[in-house]
Amino acid sequence: MSEQTTPSPTTTEEPAAPPAATEAGPSAVSRFFSSPAGRSIGLVVALLLLVVIGTVTAGENFASVDNMLVILRLASITGVVAIGVTFVITAGGIDLSVGSVLGLSSVVASLGAIQTAADGFWPLMVFVAIAVGVLAGLTNGFIIAYGKVVAFMATLAMLVAARGLAELISQRQTQIVTNDGFLDFFRGDLLGISWVVWIFIIVTLIGWFLLNRTTFGRRTVAIGGNATAARLAGVNVRRHTVYLYMLAGACAGIAGTMMLSRTTAGTSTHGLLLELDVIAAVVVGGTLLIGGRGTIGGTVLGVLLFSTLTNVFTQNNLSSSVQLVAKGIIIVIAVLLQQRFANREGSQSP
């Protein structure tokens, strides 16, 4: 790969120290925009722009606390899945199966037998959903790390198979959630904010901490940056890869429960095409698709950008088709901008 096309990102947390006078870098402006904060600024500006457009076109209907909470709830399910996928992509992998796994976990967790068993203790449904996700992730991870199958194909196979399995188990029937404890909990809120949103917030915080402050996160970035170097330095790359897909699966499982609570039913069609929204949000957020750089904050902004967009369009009674076109345009613009800044920074090496 030539130097011109290789992005040279800076660290994910601390801004890089200013280069020495002898090897001065690019101008302050482009350096700022290629710094982590700078990259996010672009997203924040885009988000603010959308808010302005929403306020102007839909007025009170858009610019209200209630509507903001609606947007957040809209973002929560995609967001939780996206946090898990951020780790996989940061390590240079991809997980296409998260949408299907979400559907499968919602189906298994809402099976009659499970709901009955969870009569006295509703969190059992949550555990079951997460366990299903973790198992699917474990399978993905094993096939990728030890079977040496490319992640794209392995998780594509899981995308198909998990959806099929969900249909088999549910016999294509919608399974209504009857467990009152479960429904009551998720109907409730804390400080006026729905539990669904709180889960998103908590998963985000844990994800940020995990990626930026733990050895697990460091290994993830290292593997994405240079898997051979990581392995030669003693990192168990294969085992870590399995953990990463388990993490993505767990997040899909959590999102499966959230989906159950929102629709009060489990069905094999939950999470259809979700993987595309998730990957779009992660990459628009600034995580490199080739790995080596990941940002949880960016992912959250990416998810919020798309859910706000959906909300603005809905408020204005625009068709979802128009919305899809707008989404496509945003993805292209965001990626173009990312590359521009990355290139400008990369061209400094003489």
């Binding site: 040279s8 290292a222 170097a229 990581a230 030669l232």
Partner: peptide
């Protein structure tokens, strides 16, 4: 290709 993570700071390579 086998030793360094070029886009990471020096200290992360030194302590890999």
């Amino acid at each position: 290709s086998q030793g360094l993570i070029l886009d990471e700071p020096i200290y992360r390579n030194a302590t890999l």
